[in-house]
Design a protein around this nucleic acid. Sequence first.
DNA 1: CTTGACCCTGTAGTTGCTACAGGGAGCATA
DNA 2: TATGCTCCCTGTAGCAACTACAGGGTCAAG
Lengths: 132, 132
Amino acid sequence: MRSIGALGKATNTKVETIRYYERIGLLAPPQRTDGNYRTYDDEALARLSFIRRSRDLGFSLDQVRALLSLTDQGTQDCKTVDRIARDHMAEIERKIADLIALRHELSTMIESCGGGNISECRIIEALSPFDN
Amino acid sequence: MRSIGALGKATNTKVETIRYYERIGLLAPPQRTDGNYRTYDDEALARLSFIRRSRDLGFSLDQVRALLSLTDQGTQDCKTVDRIARDHMAEIERKIADLIALRHELSTMIESCGGGNISECRIIEALSPFDN
DNA sequence: CTTGACCCTGTAGTTGCTACAGGGAGCATA
DNA sequence: TATGCTCCCTGTAGCAACTACAGGGTCAAG
Ligand SMILES: [Zn+2]
Ligand SMILES: [Zn+2]
Ligand SMILES: [Zn+2]
Ligand SMILES: [Zn+2]
C-alpha cells in the first residue's frame, strides 16, 4: 500500500493527474486511510502504469478506456485490441504525412527570405493573400 | 462589404470562429448594419485570410498575433518574422521525429500480435508493466 | 404574413491535464 | 506541547483553439 504521492513517483504521474483519472472513471476509487488519504495497492500501480504507457504511445483516454475494459473482460480474442492499435497507427501516419508537407512549405518560405524590410519579406508575402 | 457568413465562406472559416477571433482581439470589431449585423470590408478579408493561412501552417494564435502586429507596424526588418518561422519549423521537426519514433514502437507492437485470446495478446503485454 | 435562412449574445462543452485556494493529517523537532 | 514541514484533501478554474447550443432578432422571398 502506497500513498498517492508515492504512486505518482512510481509512475511518473502528477498527483493531480491521478485524481483526475479517478474522477473520470479510469482508475477505481482506492481505499482510504483513517485520515482520508488514498492508498493504492499493486494492482492500481499496474493499472496506472498501463495507462501511462498507452498515453506515451499516443492513445487517447477513450482508447485507453477501451483497452482496459477489453483486458478486464478477458475477451475471447484480441481483434478489437488490434483494431484500436491499427487505427491509432493510421492516425499517426496521417499526422506524419501532414507534418512533412508542412515542413516542406515552411522551409520553402523561410529560405526565400533574404532579410531586409518587412514590407518585402517573402515570409509575410507567402502568408498574405492576393499576392502581386 | 460582406456578412460574417460570406466572409466565412470566402475563407473557409466557421462563423463562430470569426466571432471568436474578434473576441480575443485578433480581428478588429467590424462595422455593423442597422440591424446589428457585422459587415466586413476587403481589409478584413485579407486579414482573416492571413490568419487562416498561418493557422494552416501550424502557427499558434500567439504567433499569428505577433506576425500581424509586426506587419501592422511595418517594422524595419524582418528578423523577428524569420525568428518566429524558424522556431515554428524547429517545433515541427521535433514533432515529426517524435511521431516517427512512435510509429516504430507501434508497428513493432502491432506486428507481434498473432491474433487469439486476449490473455496472450502481445499488444496488451507490450502495454503492461512487469513483463515476464 | 409567414417561412426560412441568416444573424445576434452568452454560455458551456471538448481533450488532457495543471494550478491554485483553503483547509486537514501526520511526523519530527525544540 | 507547540511549531514547523511535508504531504494530503476537496473544489474550482485555467490552458488552446475552437465548436455547439439556447433563445432570441433581422431580412428577403413568396
Ligand atoms: Zn490516436
Ligand atoms: Zn523576411
Ligand atoms: Zn509552432
Ligand atoms: Zn493481439
